[in-house]
Amino acid sequence: MTLRVVLADDEPLARKRLARLLREAGCEVVAELTGSAATLEWFGQNREGDALFLDIQMPGLSGLEVLAELQDPPPVVFVTAHVQYAVQAFEAAAVDYLLKPVTEDRLLKTLERLHHQQIPRRKGAELAALIPAPSPRFPVRAGEGFVFLDLRKVSHFEVEDEVVYAWSGERFKTSWTTLLEIEQAFPDEGLVKVHRHLLVRPQAILGFKPLMGGRGDITVTGGRVLPVSRASVPKLKGLLGLLSRGEGI
Rank of each mutant, 00 (worst) to 15 (best):
E144Y: 12
R113F: 06
F53P: 01
P132N: 02
R245K: 12
L191P: 11
L21V: 04
G213W: 14
P101V: 00
V228Y: 05
P74D: 05
L243E: 15
F148Q: 14
G145S: 13
A125E: 15
I205N: 10
V5R: 01
P132M: 03
P134E: 12
L211T: 13
A166P: 06
L33V: 06
Y165W: 15
L226Y: 11
L127A: 02
T80Q: 06
L199P: 10
R245V: 10
D10R: 00
L33C: 05
E126V: 07
H156Y: 15
V77W: 04
G213H: 14
S135G: 11
V83L: 11
I119D: 04
E104N: 08
L61Q: 10
V140T: 10
V194D: 06
K209G: 06
T34S: 12
T174N: 07
T80M: 01
R20I: 07
A128N: 08
G63W: 02
L199H: 11
L226I: 09
P139A: 14
V147Y: 00
V76S: 04
M212Q: 13
G214N: 11
T178L: 11
R121A: 05
L149E: 03
L149Y: 09
L199Q: 08
G169R: 12
L18D: 01
L21I: 11
G124Q: 04
G169E: 10
V154Y: 09
V200D: 12
M212R: 14
R201H: 13
R4G: 00
L191A: 13
E183N: 10
Q71M: 00
V87P: 03
A128Q: 15
L111F: 09
K153R: 15
I56A: 09
Q45G: 07
K109W: 03
D217I: 12
V154S: 07
L61N: 06
A38R: 04
T34I: 04
G44W: 08
G214K: 12
L242S: 08
I56D: 07
L242H: 11
E162F: 07
A8Q: 02
R224M: 05
F53E: 07
G207Q: 14
G35Y: 06
A204P: 10
L236P: 03
R121Q: 12
L61H: 10
L99T: 09
G124A: 06
L179D: 07
F53I: 01
P73G: 08
E126N: 05
L99I: 15
K235F: 13
E41W: 12
V233L: 09
R141Q: 15
K209L: 13
